[in-house]
Amino acid sequence: MTKKRIDRVSVFAECDAVVKDLPNERITSRLIGTRMGVSNTAVYKLVKQWREEAKKAQEELISQTQMSSKFVGALLTEVDARVTEMRQLDEQESTQMSQEMDEMAEQVGTLEAEIISLREQLDGRTIELATANEKLETQNKDLNDKLEAKGVELQGMTKDYAKAQVKAEAYDDLSKELADLKAKAEDLVGQNATLQAKQEATAMTISNLEASNADNIAQRNNAQEALALVNARLTDAQNALQTKTLECATLEATIGNKADSTEAK
C-alpha cells in the first residue's frame, strides 16, 4: 500500500474514485484512510467535508428543478427519489459517525489506560530513584570516609615506610583497595545518571500521550456536534418532502380541474 499525500485535493480525488469504481460502497474515513495508507483520523475532517459538499450539491440540484404542469408527475417522482437518497445519505453519515465516535472512544480509553500505566511506572521509578539517591548519598559518604581514612593511612605508611620497613606487597594492596573504592564511586554515579534519564524519558512519553488523547477527545466532540446537525437536516428534509408533496397534490388537482373545464366547454 502506497502512502499518499494528505490534503483536500488528494482526499477528494480518492472519494470521487470510490464513487466511480465502487458506486455501492459507503464513503467512510476508514475506507479512504485504508486506500491512502494512513489512519482514519488523518483523513476524517476532509472526508466529512467531502460528504457535506456532495450532499449540498444534491440539495442544490433539487432546488434548481423547475416545476411545470406538464412534468408534475415526473417532478414528484424525482423529488421523492432525491429526498429518499438524501435521507439514506444522512442515515449512512449518522451511522458512520456513530461508529467513528465509538472507535475514538475506544482509542481514548486505550490511551487513558496506557497513561495510567505509565504514570504508575513513573511513580515507581521516582521512588526507585529517590531510594537509589539515598543509598548513593550514604555509600558516597561511606566511601569518602574510607578514602580519607585510607589516604591518611597511606600517607602515614609512606612516611613511616623506611622506619617500619613495611613490605612492598602491603603497600600495593592498599593502593589497589583505594582504586577499587574510587571505581565503585564512579559506577554509582553512572547508575544515578541512568535512572534520571529513564525518568525523563517516561515523563516525555506521558506528555505526548496526553496531547494525543486531548486531540481524540476534541475529534469525538466534533463528531457529536456533526451528528446532531445531520439529525436536524434529516428532520428539515422530511418537512420539505411533506411540503413538496402537498404542493404537487394541489397542482395536480388544479390541472385536473382546468382539464375538466376545457372538456366541458
Rank of each mutant, 00 (worst) to 15 (best):
K4E: 10
R125W: 06
A197S: 05
L188R: 14
R30A: 12
A259E: 11
E85T: 08
Q64K: 09
T235H: 08
R233T: 04
I6P: 00
A74E: 14
A164R: 10
T77N: 13
Y171A: 12
E148S: 13
S94M: 08
I6K: 01
L227C: 06
N231F: 07
G109Q: 08
L75A: 06
K258T: 06
S175H: 09
D80M: 04
A232I: 08
E225S: 12
T126I: 00
L195H: 05
S10I: 01
V152I: 15
V19C: 12
M101N: 13
I32C: 02
L181H: 14
A130P: 00
Y44I: 02
K55F: 07
R119T: 09
S63R: 11
M101F: 08
Y171Q: 10
T110Y: 12
A197Y: 01
N144R: 12
I217L: 07
L234C: 11
A183S: 13
V72Y: 00
A249D: 11
A183C: 04
S68I: 04
A179F: 13
A81V: 04
C248M: 14
E120G: 05
A54G: 10
I206V: 06
E134C: 02
L181S: 15
I116Q: 15
E78H: 05
N140M: 02
N213T: 11
Q66F: 04
E134V: 02
T243F: 01
E263D: 09
A214D: 15
R233L: 03
L234I: 03
T84V: 03
A223Q: 06
L22I: 01
K141E: 10
D215G: 04
L251T: 09
E177V: 05
L136V: 04
E106S: 11
V19D: 14
E103V: 05
D260M: 10
S94H: 07
E225N: 11
L178H: 13
E137H: 03
D260A: 15
I127H: 08
E53M: 08
S63H: 08
Q165D: 10
F12A: 06
I116N: 14
Q196W: 00
I32G: 03
D215T: 14
N140G: 05
Q224K: 10
V108E: 15
T65R: 15
V11F: 00
